[in-house]
Design a protein around this nucleic acid. Structure first.
Lengths: 255, 255
DNA sequence: CGTTCGATTGAGGAAGATCAATTAATGTGG
DNA sequence: CCACATTAATTGATCTTCCTCAATCGAACG
């Protein structure tokens, strides 16, 4: 089997109290602001305003630019040669997009705005040149790439080890957390994806997403605002995190 | 089901010419050699020889070094706070590991040798300093990170859109392709993972992996060498790719 | 030479997919 | 402003895939 004990023990930090959590959120917001400021100071970002459905870039397009979101939401859509496609990531303010294009000089996925969105774009070569003058720029770029790698692994783990209900809860938790870190309101969130898109992202059908959301609402973890059921009331973010891990807790009970 | 027809159909899909494919493989092998040479020329890699089961690094450990495989095989094992763990990646000669640690100054996963393995390790700060003197170094680093991001997305897509049998075929195809690109033999490969580990990596149980392999053997796409069924004979790598996409072809037929 | 571990295979069950019907919301053209 | 078409979401019924549980077998190892 896989050896679990040592690393799990050493890795984990003392309990994150709510205050701690709020600190972490403030710190993230500060870091995002600082990064954007740094970029603005050393490069001339080309600013673009996009509307829901507009592509930032598309798969196959020649890679020249990297992009950072200054506002809005973007989905990353991966497509296979045979036509399968999947929402492979969600991006928020401060996130970098287009990093996948560096390797082969072409973007390997679509990046689509999910709402009114402002992106700052830089030529990759100009960025590298600027990094030579300002090492802090290189640090933030590497941090962004590193974070994306770590994040993708966590997504894979959710897909592989959590049952459908928990994946939906985890998805909401991630969305809420992403908003909180950017200082946006989280008591009521607007999902900018259809049930079908959420299902595609989470590896399940739209019916399963719908049932999972209904169940969370029945358990009063979330609620629906308005009759268009895209606006979701998050009564208790911690309950969401709990719902995401409930099946694990249940499994542990049986030991 | 309708195997015989679809299998035959997928087999004669107009493949990128074998010659093309061989070119791509040679190019990859050349690039890996060049990267290792570049690293050796500009840094003093600390070489380490590891044996199966030895960690290159572990989750939670302080990040200081990046590592490149010069020989052998490494698995990346991600672990969640609640104890879930998953094989999240497989690494071969020329691959970089530890990139996930840059963001927060700590590794977020374990990297474990799956066989006798030689890793070259560099201090991250020394590497960055060297990049300033030699831009080609920065290029290969960025390319490695970019490739990993793109690759992880493809893995996610396999997990989400392919049924179990196809995921196993795709896993073997990936392994064979990785070996081919490094100039290693691919007619017979030794899986360095138990069925349980493969299943963990692919998001299924060990029994499902076993059944999928048996089925591929029954269809003569693969064979078993020796009675310890870890050595696998790959009769036709293209047939493997076909098996990975068969379910899609079948679905398209029904339209 | 027994013990343990990994792999295979079968039988039964459960999670989630598929199919289908209904409702609500949104948009369109008259 | 209203009939009408279209799209999204919900919910139920059924079916399939894959998981769970269990038995067996071979190989490796002390």
């Amino acid at each position: 089997m896989l050896q679990t004990t040592t690393a799990a023990a050493t890795r984990h930090v003392p309990m994150p109290l709510p205050a701690r959590e709020a600190d972490a959120h403030r710190e993230t917001a500060r870091a995002i602001g600082a990064t954007l400021e740094l970029l603005r100071a050393h490069l001339e970002p080309q600013r673009r305003l996009l509307h829901a459905g507009d592509p930032v870039y598309q798969a196959g397009e020649r890679f020249q630019m990297l992009h950072v979101l200054n506002a809005g939401f973007v989905k990353i859509v991966n497509l296979a040669a045979d036509g399968r496609e999947q929402v492979a990531g969600l991006k928020f303010r401060g996130d970098w997009i287009g990093l996948d294009g560096i390797a082969d000089g072409r973007y390997t996925c679509d990046a689509i705005a999910m709402d009114t969105t402002e992106v700052w774009s830089f030529r990759y070569d100009a960025l590298i040149a600027a990094c030579a003058r300002e090492p802090a720029l290189l640090r933030v770029l590497h941090e962004a790439m590193s974070r994306e790698i770590a994040r993708d692994r966590d997504s894979m783990m959710s897909l592989c080890t959590l049952p459908a209900d928990a994946r939906v809860a985890e998805f909401l938790r991630f969305w809420v957390d992403s908003l909180a870190r950017r200082g946006l309101r989280t008591d009521q969130i607007t999902l900018r994806m259809t049930r079908a898109e959420i299902g595609n992202y989470l590896g399940m059908t739209l019916e399963t997403v719908s049932r999972a959301l209904s169940k969370l609402a029945r358990e009063n973890v979330i609620g629906f605002a308005g009759s268009a059921r895209r606006d979701i009331l998050v009564h208790d973010a911690h309950a969401l995190a709990g719902a995401a891990q409930r099946p694990l807790a249940a499994a542990a009970m049986l030991q």
